[in-house]
Structures are given as structure tokens and as C-alpha cells.
Design a protein around this nucleic acid. Sequence first.
DNA 1: AAACGTTGCAACCGCCATGGC
DNA 2: TGCCATGGCGGTTGCAACGTT
Length: 390
Amino acid sequence: MGRHSCCHKQKLRKGLWSPEEDEKLLKHITKHGHGCWSSVPKLAGLQRCGKSCRLRWINYLRPDLKRGTFSQQEENLIIELHSVLGNRWSQIATQLPGRTDNEIKNLWNSCIKKKLRQRGIDPSTHRLLVESENPEDNKVSTSSENHFGLYTVDGLKQPLIQPVPSPAQSFDKNSAEGEEFIIYNSTAFLPSSSSNSISFFPLPQTIFGGATASLPLNPNPFLFLNQNCRVFDMNPELSCSSSISAPAASISSSVLSNLVDVKSPVDLSSSFTHPACAESPTFPCFDAGNPRRCGGSFIDGGLLTWPDMSTLQDEPEDLKWSEYLQGNFPVSSILQNQQLYANNSISESHIGIEGLALWHPNQLPQQQQQPNSELKGKDFQRISPLSGQI
DNA sequence: AAACGTTGCAACCGCCATGGC
DNA sequence: TGCCATGGCGGTTGCAACGTT
């Protein structure tokens, strides 16, 4: 026997609210406040349950509600927050004054989800969509066996889903023409040298695989804190010792704590590692489906090293997650950031990373592409100094 | 013009956490 | 300690408006 809804206990009205009901509720709450919601309908002279009144007030009648369509900035913020908070609509709503959780949820389900899928991103995981046997599945599928996928930045004429190469293919610099991939990692963040901040590193934009070099740093902290964001347990005896240099952005831990639940403080001086690596020396640091990827090149390692953000003189252009989604980021930024990585010294901070995905550079927006061979050569040169630091 | 499909939004449903008794 | 009322939340549904055939 299912539980009876409160409206079934008495003969209460359901469905859309009439203007008269709205007026009664509005008048009552304006005059007396809502107090105990269960008493509101009686006091306001409404044939509704308290819950229904509460919902109507919160989602529609509240005077501080912002009306109208969502701005692009608001959409972008929702995407960023969703990557951190998931479907915690009420928490997301707190970051968007005048918007309700219901409104945001509706926007997400009806609009944003679609946009993300068109761009080859799984809206529930914020990862890349991957090929499926059934083309229908491609709309939403992600790989369950590993974390690789392909990013179609334009998302229009190109097929959304492309075959995913084997790890050997994707990271062999001598691999066949066109087998060049950008690694899109899920997330990582690391302790910085400051006791009250946590630094973030956006591997999604950071590494070119195959013969190529790195993607840009994204200092946007939200992006670094998506669903896979974890502070790994410290394990100084970790066998995986590869590292990569990269600048890190940081936000204060108090801001962070408002967004994510950081269970335990991080040790700001120690290295920490992917738990899977600690469990098994041959277990991949980056990709649960590819054991060979632990401990070979910088791509293989589960420990990354990068310079302190404070040592950076010229901060890279602030590349927003939303700009990636829209394909608005310039290649120059990528290259600039790669140069930054190469030029900056490595700190002793280490970080564990989990989750990778790939996108194919050929699927970058047309105006941002460079001749493939040229890009390969340049990028590989740029990544070389990094390789030397591993 | 009618039928059908799609979209966006408001509202409901059911579960869970909390606090009072 | 257990029960109950209440509030809050996320998932889902229902429906009107709109678009397409």
C-alpha cells in the first residue's frame, strides 16, 4: 500500500493554481508570513495542502524571483555547478539568486542536457560520449569499461561519436596520421603550499596524447571539481612515480567547502596517490581499463607534479568551461599554456588523477584548427621539456 | 484545418532528515 | 526510544502551447 499524499487526506484542490488562489496565498504570506506551512491553507482560506502552498510560494509567488529566460552566464554557471554538485538543484539554486531549484532542474532537463549531448558530452557525468554499437545509445552512452571518449567540440556535422583508439595507438607519437588525441581527464585537485587553499588542476584541458603536447590549463575551479574529484589518500610509498608539470589554479578552501564536501583535509606537503595504484602496482593510475598506463610516460603515471601557481608570472587566459562547450577557446591559448608548463619549474606537490577521455583535434572548431602535421610537431616539441621532468 | 509530435514548465509524488513529544 | 508531523528535496508526470506534417 503506497503512502497517501497529504492532499488525499482531505478533499483538497490539486493542479494549476488559479489567480484567486495565488492572490489569497500572496496576501496571507505578505501579511502574516508563512509560519507553519500546514496551517497556511486554513488561515489563507485555501483548499490546498500546506505542501502545495509552500511550493507555489517558493516557485512562483515569492517576490524575489527573477523572471524570464536564463542568461548565457546563468546557463554556464549551472553547467559548472552541476559538474561539481550533480543533481543537487537546491544547492545550485543558492548560487543563482532569484532562480528556483525547480526552474533550474527544468532548464537542465529540457535544454542544457540537449546542448551538452550535441557537443558530445554526457550531461550526467560531464564526460565525453563514446561510441556505442547502437547509434541510438550514442546519445547518452559512456564507456563502462574505461574512461575514454571522444569530444566533438563542434557537435554539428561531425558524428558525435568516433572510435576510441587503443591506448597504445593514442599515445604512440609515431602512430598513423590522424591518430592524435587530446586527453580529457575528468578532474583532479591538489594541495597547494598555502594552508587555506586548495589548488586545482584541470587535466581535461591539459594533455595532448599521441605525438602531441598539452592542452590549456583551465583555472576555473568548478571544472576541476566534477563528479570524479577526489582527494586521494596519501601514500608516499606509491610505486607510480611519473609526473607532469603544470600550473595550478586555486580557490580558497572556504569557497570550496561551500561547493563540495571535502571530507578530510589534505596534507599540503606530501604526495598522494590514486587508491587503485596503492591497491595494485599494475593497476592503472589514469584509466581503470588500461593496466599498461601506470608508470611509463607522463601519461601513464598517477602522480603529477606541477609548479606553484604563485610562481607564474603571466597567468594564462581564463578559459571557461562554457567556452569549451561553445568551442570558443583559441588554440593560441592552448599553445600559450603549453609553453607555460614547459617554462615553469616543478613543485613538490603531487596529485592523483582518475578518469580520462579523449577528443580528436580534427574535431576542434574549424577556425581553431591548425594543419595537423604542424600542430603535432609543435606540440610535441612543447611537451618534450615536460617529458624530461618525468 | 486537423492530427500528431515535441517542448517547456508547473505541480505532484514519494522519500528522507529533523525535531518535538 | 519510537512515533509522528513537518519541511525539504529530487524525480516524475501532466498538460498547454507550439511546431510539423
